[in-house]
């Protein structure tokens, strides 16, 4: 079985009434030669690592070695506990957990690249908010990871998933698009609705550049992961309401590819443009570089 586009995926799913997650599991069984249980457990192991990263960041308010990130997930948690969050439990918890995962990443903690380390916060944020607020168990969330991986697999093979290649639209954009489709499938939406959610989420992040301050996966990466969760929920809500992306998902992915190709090198993870070129970012870079050369 080979799925090379979202259109292919829908044909495959709708022919046999399969979910996107079922389709990914079937593909993996065929390609790897492993048994169903082995494949499922391998994915569940990744979910458990995500759970640990979410948990560590919830209570660890320490700074990253650079001193330019850390402590914000704890702040977000306190704020939510005071009942102040404007976005409601589901989104605010997802924001908190995305932040704790991305802070854990910056601290050189253990994370799971989804699809990259720079965009590792979005999916765990969304999934563990479902766990806490909607009672989804770990097996259901593991299935969600199969949904996410097939959506990501199609994006990665038709476009790109790294900031150096295609800007942040390729990293947080892809992660958010994967999360949006996953939410739809977890909530019982059809594969077609999930693909619309993927397209809607990706459209909203097209053109986003990769401009990390001092080359670190911290500013603005961590907060972009957090915002990605809110976009994923908005896109999923639209798709579940029956709203469709007017541009088919495959064409959105192709547009992302073309935008990335046209994006100047200064805005693709070189830290030569965008936020990385601001006076504040330059000062951070000088401070870190000086500290480095003294060591």
């Amino acid at each position: 079985m080979k799925v090379s586009s979202m259109a292919d995926l829908l044909i495959t799913c709708e022919k046999d009434g399969h979910s996107i997650a079922d389709c990914m599991i079937a593909m993996e069984l065929e390609n790897s030669g492993l048994g169903r249980e082995q494949v499922f457990n391998k994915m569940k192991e990744r979910l458990l690592k995500m759970k640990a990263a979410v948990a560590s960041g919830k209570t660890d308010g320490s700074d990253a070695p650079s001193g330019i990130s850390g402590g914000d997930a704890v702040k977000m948690g306190d704020y939510i506990q005071q009942g102040k969050a404007l976005t409601g439990n589901l989104i605010s918890t997802a924001m908190r957990y995305a932040m704790s995962t991305s802070e854990c990443n910056a601290r050189m903690g253990v994370i799971v690249a989804t699809p990259t380390a720079g965009s590792a916060g979005v999916l765990p944020g969304v999934l563990f908010s479902f766990h806490d607020n909607e009672g989804y168990n770990l097996d259901q969330l593991t299935k969600g990871l199969f949904t996410a991986s097939l959506l990501g697999y199609i994006i990665a093979n038709n476009s790109f998933i790294s900031g150096a290649a295609g800007g942040c639209q390729a990293e947080v954009g892809s992660a958010t698009a994967m999360a949006a489709g996953t939410i739809v499938e977890l909530k019982g939406g059809s594969p077609r609705q999930a693909v619309h959610a993927t397209a809607i989420a990706m459209k909203s992040l097209l053109g986003l550049v990769c401009d990390p301050v001092a080359g670190l996966v911290e500013v603005p990466c961590i907060k972009r992961n957090v915002i990605g969760t809110a976009i994923a929920f908005s896109a999923a809500d639209m798709a579940l309401a029956g709203i469709e992306s007017r541009i088919p998902c495959d064409e959105v992915i192709e547009a992302m590819y073309k935008i990335g190709k046209e994006m100047p090198r200064t805005l693709r993870e070189t830290s030569l443009g965008g936020l990385a070129a601001t006076p504040t970012a330059q000062k951070v870079k000088e401070r870190l570089y000086k500290r480095g050369s003294e060591q």
């Binding site: 990914m24 391998k42 050189m108």
Partner: peptide, 24 residues
């Protein structure tokens, strides 16, 4: 088709902060 498995997308399990500059 550079990416061949669901674990190429969800993974690796790694120490942060960068899949290219740390894990690789």
């Amino acid at each position: 088709m550079e990416f061949q498995s669901c674990f190429d997308i969800i993974g690796p399990i790694m120490i942060g902060p960068s899949s290219s500059h740390t894990a690789g």
